[in-house]
Nucleic acid binder design. Structure first.
Lengths: 133, 133
DNA sequence: CTTTTTGCAAAACATTTGCATGTAA
DNA sequence: TTACATGCAAATGTTTTGCAAAAAG
């Protein structure tokens, strides 16, 4: 059930990307992550950041969400459990939420003769901190 | 409740874009739509296609979904009713589906102290025709 | 050693913008 | 008329790629 894509070789760059991703409050773009590495004095090529983020996503360590501005990544808290995200539009912070009834998708799809392959659900809003700030 | 953005001026180009969008089976990219117009001998500038698709979306005549490959547009069947999409990964055909309990989002969000501003839900699969083909 | 990764700069795309010219109202 | 839309080409911004040099196993 768990998609076990081949794992890539261990490098300091991969660890660095993983580290920054984990420390990030919420979703970050590749460019953003690259900038953060740079700021903390850790020079990693932008291309490598893209490559590693892709690898981490493949390996189930990161989640991706596509927006009009590009793709956003975040470290996965529950690599094995299927989940969705509640994302703060102000600070990018995110919470993983589980859907009670995932079968709903399959049922609705079946009603239309469709076979579901995947689905994407993201909820955007403002987190407690940003609401009061 | 219905977002009534100012409507733009009527031009042959806008009509052409709207027409192709309506004739398209499912979601199409701006580039794609531009190519289709070109093929049918209707020369419309790419920039205009982008501008008009944006306008149509603003006016509630089109839906947008962001994917890793860019934004996809499709003519809206139910401009006034809130809905989601069931999209065929093979042919791009799409069906609009309504969610029974939209309050679920607000409830889950509230549990985490979030105030929901918007959400996005897309279901990808294979339509009846592509399943058998 | 042999195979992967890295870094860089260039390339490839998608999307937007500036501006002179056309056109709906 | 006159404000707004168009078309082009140039500008942006993101993501990918080619390739020689460096690192991992």
């Amino acid at each position: 059930m768990a998609r076990k894509r081949a794992t890539t070789r261990n490098t300091t760059q991969k660890d660095a990307v993983r580290q920054v991703l984990k420390n990030a409050a919420g979703f970050v773009s590749a460019q953003d992550l690259h900038r953060r590495l740079d700021t903390e004095g850790n020079r990693v090529g932008l291309a490598t950041v893209y490559r590693q983020l892709g690898a981490l996503a493949d390996e189930g360590e990161a989640d991706i969400v596509s927006t009009a501005e590009g793709q956003l990544f975040r470290a996965c808290w529950q690599p094995d459990r299927h989940h969705h995200h509640l994302i703060c539009e102000t600070c990018g912070d995110a919470v993983e939420v589980a859907l009670g009834d995932e079968d709903w998708f399959a049922r609705v799809a079946a009603d239309h003769g469709y076979a579901v392959t995947r689905h994407s659900l993201e909820i955007f809003g403002r987190c407690p901190r940003c609401r009061t700030a």
